[in-house]
Nucleic acid binder design. Structure first.
Lengths: 350, 350
DNA sequence: CTGAAAGCGCTTACAG
DNA sequence: CTGAAAGCGCTTACAG
């Protein structure tokens, strides 16, 4: 490996001078700068970042802790983090907790994972990362989980604390817009299949749904609200119940794509055509929604943006710049496909 | 931050001694070892790995370059890498090339990405990684792409060169076993929907299919072999052609799950029941195959193992240990679900 | 069994 | 505009 010392010797200058031209600091005459650059080029010299880090006390690396990289949302968020980190000259030290593999969706058992979190944090700290990003797989409050003197931003989950930030998407607004989208197409009987009721997203999405209904002067019918558990099967079961109603809904909004898939399956079995007889809207825009038949219209999550925003905030925090909001919510965007049709003359599903 | 020097002072020993107890080296009396450990515990001291790396010339970090983290195979491979790296006390520096986003499946355009590869490699090198793992998104030969004095292993792609290794799954064996699985259930008219014909996997899988047919004394019927392009739509089109044949196949093996999904859709349209009238087997076991109706029987890829094996080999290479094979192929495992049925009395699909 | 010293490859005041 | 020197936090022969 060629060192700064070698370059200095060949260029007949001191190591300090070489360091300065590399970092564009100090006043260096154009002549020596060129001379040094030429040698660097010739020897294909690359500064040793480990040594640099030791001296500057900055590693330009972000520790990323992801609860489970195999969950659908994680890769796209990491994608965004990587993009933005690149642009900021930062690298990513990745740790995967495998939470989903360990406890599935039973977050009451999350305590079991806390030791892994601690280990990951310690390891990252001993590697002197400048800050951390924690990627959840379910939006919940993680305040107190991580306690370190460096900035950390939580995404797809949240936490409040000194030098801690959260970036998420706006669940309520998303559900509001999805519902409004249906209303604008003439639907008045809109059913909702919720996720597990104790979760923040379920709660916020219900609020958005309810607000859209009321703001448009529609009656709220509790019979149209069903609670599932985020899985395909529960969408199927709830849809069956909904389709058995005397006064059937003309549209169903499911709180995730999996349950929407279950709705589609129930319709197929009952001879209900989607979207002619019933419109269906999902949530998440995961890959699978594209392959459902019909292709599912669904609320897309700003995953890439979640990642990008997280590093933007983190970098500001690292630089010690002021950060306006401790918690930011990004907007979702509806992906229109083939599972929604305007209701005509009240004709849908009679 | 507390340093080794602080511990030494408090324990009334030299920094060298502290270093030795931390690293379990040299001969330290039980008494001083305990004394030092106690202080370390009390101050919650964490060694600075940056300093350590500078001195030892080992960072215990693996540079991972992934062509595209949003492609289905990548997260699970990274999952495996992370697991095994953890076990070896290594960390992962992750770089995402976003190749799929940039060029899709048109690998003739890969030249455009080479600059990103170079940048990633340089960055990783300047961060002094001990070795690298390159995760492809399509099995092809990448010899010459990376040229560095450190070991690198290629997975889901391959390359040969000094200190370079490849780990993949065995395409031919997988196709052989999938075909044999069908034959063992009485199928004799087995169609194959291939991926793009210029790809290594297509070629190897065809070979496996052909070998199974012949080894079981069945006639090879070229009419049963169709070429798709890996996409859903092509599976649909090819299945339609196959179903229009006078002498229809009783089973279709598709070279990936997407095309198998297309087959399922074609069957639905034509009133062909799966698996009663036609058995279908996919390839990849991506998440989506679980949600197809019927749930797809498919050849599962050993993605996690690909990742694990990659770091095992890399670690050996880093340690300078001998590595038996430059290229290793792992076995795939069939995931049995609901799209295959034994053929009875030649009754299938008449 | 333990300590003093040198050094890993950089950067950064400081002096000139 | 440039160089000599100190030091970041460790580890590792070497001496005792």
């Amino acid at each position: 490996m060629v060192r700064i010392k070698d370059i200095a010797k060949l260029a007949n200058v001191s190591p300090a001078t070489v360091s300065m031209v590399i970092n564009n600091r100090g006043n260096i005459s154009e002549a020596t700068r060129k001379k040094v650059l030429k040698i660097i080029e010739e020897l294909n010299y690359q500064p040793n970042n480990v040594a640099r880090s030791l001296k500057t006390n900055r590693t330009r690396t972000i520790g990323v802790i992801v609860e489970d990289i195999t969950v659908f949302s994680s890769p796209e968020i990491i994608h965004g983090i990587n993009e933005s980190a690149d642009e900021h000259g930062m690298s990513i030290l990745l740790t995967n907790l495998r939470v989903h593999r360990l406890i599935g969706n039973n977050f009451e058992n999350f305590d079991r994972c806390k030791q892994s979190v601690m280990n990951a944090v310690e390891e990252l700290l001993s590697r002197q990362v400048d800050g951390m990003i924690y990627i959840g797989i379910h939006n919940r409050d993680l305040t107190g989980l991580i306690n370190i003197p460096k900035p950390v931003v939580f995404t797809y989950c949240s936490a409040s604390g000194e030098n801690q930030y959260s970036v998420n998407y706006d669940d309520e607004l998303a559900a509001f817009e999805a519902t409004e989208y249906l209303i604008q197409r003439g639907h008045e009987k809109i059913a909702l299949i919720s996720g597990l009721i104790d979760s923040i997203p379920s709660h916020d999405r219900f609020t958005g749904y309810y607000r859209a209904i009321r703001e448009h002067g529609l009656p709220f019918n509790p019979v149209y609200v069903k609670t599932g558990d985020w899985e395909f099967e529960s969408g199927y079961v709830m849809a069956k119940e909904l389709l058995a109603l005397a006064d059937k809904p003309t549209a169903i909004l499911a709180m995730n794509d999996l349950m929407a898939g279950g709705v589609l399956e129930a319709c197929r079995e009952c001879g209900v055509r989607v979207p002619e007889d019933l419109s269906v809207v999902g949530f998440d825009n995961r890959e699978i929604s594209f392959y459902f038949i019909p292709k599912l219209t669904t609320m897309g999550l700003p995953l890439n943006e979640l990642g990008r925003k997280s590093v933007e905030i983190l970098v500001r925090a690292i630089e010690g710049e002021p950060i306006p909001e401790k918690s930011v919510k990004l907007k979702c965007n509806l992906v229109e496909r083939q599972s929604v049709m305007p209701v005509r003359d009240g004709l849908a599903i009679q």
